[in-house]
Each structure stands twice: as C-alpha cells, then as structure tokens.
Amino acid sequence: MTGSTPSPAANLGGAPTVLILPGWLGSGPDHWQMQWARLHGYAVVEQNDWQHPLRGDWLARLDETVIDAPGPVVLVAHSLGCLLVAAWASVSRHTSRVHGALFVAPGDTEAAELKDRLPGWSPIVRQALPFKSILVGSQNDPFCAVERAQGLAHDWGAHWVDLGAAGHINADSSLGDWPQGQTLLQTLLKD
C-alpha cells in the first residue's frame, strides 16, 4: 500500500471514480455499499441478472464501466464482486485505469455449498493483481472461511484486514454506513 511508485492509473489524471460492485443477489438498501452510494455519490455497477450471475456478462459490464469512466477508478467489491474483479483483471486490457480496489468478504465459489449454485465462477482466479488492494475478511463469514479469504489476499497481493466476527460484512452485520471501511477506502484514494 505504501511506496513511491505511482499507480499506472495516475497518468489518467483527475480524482478516481469509485465504482461499487455488489455480489450475488445485489446489495439491498441497508447494505453499506448502497449507503456509500447514497452518501458519497459513488457509482453502482448494475448487472443484468443478480439472481443468476453469468461471469462473462458480469465481466463485460465491468469492462464497459471502467472504459466509460472519466478517469482512474477505485473498485469497491463485496462477495462475488471480489471474484469478478480478480477474473476481470486476468483478461482485461484496461487494468491500468484502476487506481486500487477494496475487497470485502469474498465469496468462496469453490466451496461445495456455493459451487453448484454459482456455476461458471470457479476456479477462482488467484493471480496477483496489477493494482494495489485491500481485502477485508471476517472470522465467521458463512460464505468464505477466514483461511480462504487470507489465501485470496495473499494470492492477489492485497493487504489483509481482519474485521473479527463480522459475518458476511453486509447489512446483517449491523455496520451502518461502515465508517471503518470508508477509512480504508480513503487510504486507496489518497495513495
């Protein structure tokens, strides 16, 4: 997260656009992602089908959104949105536009309980990302064991943040507009 080498997106100029990437089934109005969108004016990347996510469709939508952004972007991904970013970064020619990414509670689509429900989302892309990132995980996330989340952080080259027993770090976690997450995001925006 620190260092003197500027992000490749720095040459695009302007303040980064924050793009909110909800996961499977989207993020409801009480989810911190939607609260951030309302409070701070961040753009939500709307997917065509939240119920039956097709990886190729989601990848294309993210690529279009990044291309259409007026300058560099910072991605704020939750759950399946985290896996989307990793998959997208492995195939897109536009990763230099990304200033950074905040990953929160990645879902483990390789786990038996999710693999059949989300076909096409495994294996999880685990290559190092070409932009700085932070991954926030929980000790009791029902959709990803903490060891798996730590492994993703390591493989992606993300800074690991342990939020303790915070479930899936969603509306059910009673975080409100999650000020701690906003602080983490601000470190990415300022770097």
Results as ranks from 00 to 15, higher is better:
residue 164 G to V: 07
residue 177 D to M: 08
residue 147 E to W: 09
residue 102 L to T: 02
residue 64 E to M: 11
residue 136 V to H: 01
residue 126 R to V: 13
residue 104 V to S: 00
residue 178 W to T: 02
residue 17 T to H: 04
residue 60 A to I: 07
residue 174 S to R: 14
residue 32 W to G: 00
residue 112 A to S: 14
residue 92 S to G: 08
residue 129 L to R: 04
residue 17 T to W: 03
residue 115 K to P: 03
residue 11 N to I: 14
residue 87 A to R: 02
residue 151 G to T: 09
residue 30 D to V: 10
residue 8 P to Y: 03
residue 152 L to V: 04
residue 186 Q to H: 15
residue 147 E to L: 15
residue 78 H to V: 02
residue 148 R to E: 12
residue 100 G to Y: 00
residue 1 M to L: 13
residue 8 P to T: 02
residue 23 G to F: 05
residue 140 N to C: 11
residue 78 H to K: 04
residue 92 S to V: 08
residue 95 T to F: 04
residue 66 V to Q: 00
residue 53 P to R: 03
residue 183 T to W: 05
residue 61 R to Y: 06
residue 110 E to P: 05
residue 1 M to S: 15
residue 26 G to E: 04
residue 188 L to Y: 04
residue 163 L to K: 01
residue 51 Q to D: 15
residue 165 A to M: 13
residue 86 A to N: 06
residue 118 L to E: 07
residue 169 I to Y: 05
residue 85 V to H: 00
residue 148 R to V: 15
residue 42 Y to K: 00
residue 137 G to W: 01
residue 73 V to L: 00
residue 150 Q to W: 07
residue 74 V to D: 01
residue 93 R to L: 14
residue 116 D to L: 13
residue 63 D to M: 08
residue 37 A to K: 00
residue 68 D to W: 07
residue 54 L to K: 09
residue 119 P to D: 05
residue 70 P to L: 07
residue 84 L to A: 01
residue 103 F to T: 00
residue 99 H to E: 09
residue 36 W to M: 06
residue 147 E to C: 09
residue 151 G to N: 06
residue 169 I to H: 01
residue 172 D to E: 14
residue 93 R to S: 14
residue 54 L to T: 11
residue 75 L to G: 07
residue 34 M to Y: 02
residue 142 P to Y: 09
residue 7 S to W: 05
residue 82 C to G: 04
residue 12 L to T: 08
residue 36 W to L: 02
residue 75 L to S: 01
residue 164 G to F: 07
residue 127 Q to S: 14
residue 67 I to E: 13
residue 186 Q to T: 13
residue 182 Q to F: 14
residue 15 A to E: 15
residue 188 L to P: 02
residue 30 D to Q: 15
residue 108 D to T: 07
residue 168 H to Q: 09
residue 161 V to R: 10
residue 67 I to A: 14
residue 68 D to I: 09
residue 49 D to R: 03
residue 163 L to G: 11
residue 145 A to S: 10
residue 16 P to Y: 02
residue 6 P to C: 07
residue 131 F to T: 01
residue 134 I to H: 00
residue 22 P to G: 04
residue 79 S to M: 06
residue 184 L to H: 09
residue 121 W to R: 08
residue 119 P to W: 01
residue 169 I to R: 00
residue 100 G to R: 00
residue 137 G to T: 04
residue 107 G to C: 10
residue 89 A to T: 03
residue 148 R to Y: 10
residue 123 P to E: 03
residue 109 T to C: 12
residue 123 P to G: 08
residue 112 A to H: 11
residue 142 P to R: 11
residue 132 K to Y: 06
residue 5 T to M: 12
residue 101 A to H: 03
residue 5 T to E: 15
